Simulated assay, not measured.
Amino acid sequence: MRVAQPRSLLFGVGLSLALLCSMASLARAEAEPEVPGSGGLDLADLKAFTEAWARIKEQYVEPVDDRRLLEAALRGMVAELDPHSAWLDRARFEEVQAQATGHYGGLGMRVSPQEAHLRIESLTPGSAAELGGLRAGDRIVAVDGRPVAGLDTDRLSQLLRGEPGSRVRLEIERGPRAERLAMELTRQIIRRDSVHRVDLNDGLMLIGIDSFQQSTPAELDRALAWLDGDPSLRGLILDLRGNPGGMLQSAIAVADRFLDEGLIVRAEGRGPENQEEYVAEAGQFRSDLPMAVLIDGETASAAEIVAAALRDHGRATLIGQTSYGKASVQSIWPLPNGSGIRLTTARYRTPSGQVLEGSGLAPDLPVPVAVDDPLDRELERAIAWLNMQLEANATP
């Protein structure tokens, strides 16, 4: 025997949501005039939403709780806007906040998504990944029993990260014979630096930025202060390969470290009052040094802003492959139930006026992608280019 849910509860929940939608529509109508074709709601639309909710609750083949429906409605509502906007459940929202600060629970390794696995590129010394026996070059094929093939970057990050002290089971393949191994590791607090420097010898230095988090400008300042005291420094490489972006303000601050003046980026939001231009201030680092910027197909968003600003102002030459092509700015707000919402709030143009969405930044010196090549061809090309610039400048 099927016992129907009380209709008062069903319509109470549905009516509440309908009223919320109605209030939002009314508030929008009061704030700005209705634009023809903008899709304003009428009473029939609100009734349709309420009835659909009730039908699902009463007629769907399996019971569905209200929270699941509410979260599905929120998720679908935001996902319809664009690929970069999203509703974030409580766990995902906390993870995004942790990423911004650079502190989170994880394993301490750098991975790159491949078609059917995650390739481990490097391990943090003393990390759970290193102590647990993982090696650079290992291929992760499943996390907690779930195959990683086909999962997007956000979902992969969610699977690998979690509360410090929690356990995670990895299935990996190792070596040319794809030896299958199972490992169980304990997540630890990861305090991830986003900036690192590598002495390339002969007066050349590489500064790599993995992402743009809150601490990135301060980390870069420490690296530049150390370099500023080196009288042998002759050339600089900024490595933005694999950098997915991050915080807009941090990216602007990084670009400003290498520019004295001029537009860094123009952000175009909704309405004329939401147009922003971010301009460099005087005081760049060592303008006398030739500078190359490494980019690839995973250089995206905030990282593209930095690369474009340095190239457009003639401060650096771009070397590598065409970048990802994401020309939008997302803002994140907390919601009362602990979840959050990430919305695209602006689109940006480079100083030259270019819109990168879908096309990306083309490098000045292209370097073809070499599959399974143990040599760093982009870095080799950058070193060769810097040496050519130095030789040309030294010619009387």
Results as ranks from 00 to 15, higher is better:
Gly242Lys: 02
Val3Ala: 08
Ala79Gln: 14
Arg67Thr: 13
Gly271Val: 01
Ala309Thr: 09
Leu361Pro: 02
Leu224Met: 09
Gly14Ala: 13
Leu10Met: 11
Ala384His: 06
Arg266His: 12
Ser301Gln: 00
Leu156Tyr: 03
Gly320Glu: 09
Arg110Asp: 13
Ala91Thr: 13
Asp256Ile: 00
Ser232Asn: 08
Pro272Arg: 10
Ser287Tyr: 02
Ala362Met: 08
Ala382Glu: 06
Gly353Asn: 04
Ala282Cys: 06
Gln188Ser: 07
Ala316Cys: 09
Ser287Cys: 00
Met388Thr: 12
Trp53Met: 11
Arg110Asn: 14
Glu32Leu: 11
Val371Ile: 13
Thr186Gln: 14
Gly12Lys: 07
Glu62His: 15
Val369Lys: 09
Met1Trp: 01
Asp210Arg: 14
Val35Arg: 14
Leu200Asn: 10
Leu224Thr: 07
Leu123Ala: 05
Gly297Trp: 04
Leu379Cys: 03
Trp226Tyr: 05
Gly340Glu: 04
Gly105Thr: 06
Val329Pro: 09
Arg270Tyr: 02
Pro83Glu: 12
Asp154Val: 07
Leu238Ser: 06
Glu71Asn: 09
Arg161Pro: 01
Arg135Pro: 00
Pro147Phe: 02
Gly297Cys: 00
Gly269Leu: 01
Val254Cys: 07
Leu181Asp: 02
Gly150Tyr: 12
Gly39Arg: 08
Gly314Ser: 05
Gly246Gln: 05
Ala370Arg: 14
Arg55Gln: 15
Glu261Phe: 10
Gly269Ile: 02
Ala255His: 03
Leu26Lys: 07
Gly150Val: 07
Gly262Thr: 05
Gln213Thr: 10
Glu380Gly: 10
Leu343Lys: 08
Val61Asn: 08
Glu380Met: 12
Gly208Ile: 04
Arg139Asn: 06
Gln284Arg: 15
Asn274Pro: 00
Gly12Ala: 09
Pro176Tyr: 09
Ile305Pro: 02
Asn393Thr: 08
Ser166Pro: 02
Glu80Gly: 14
Ile209Glu: 03
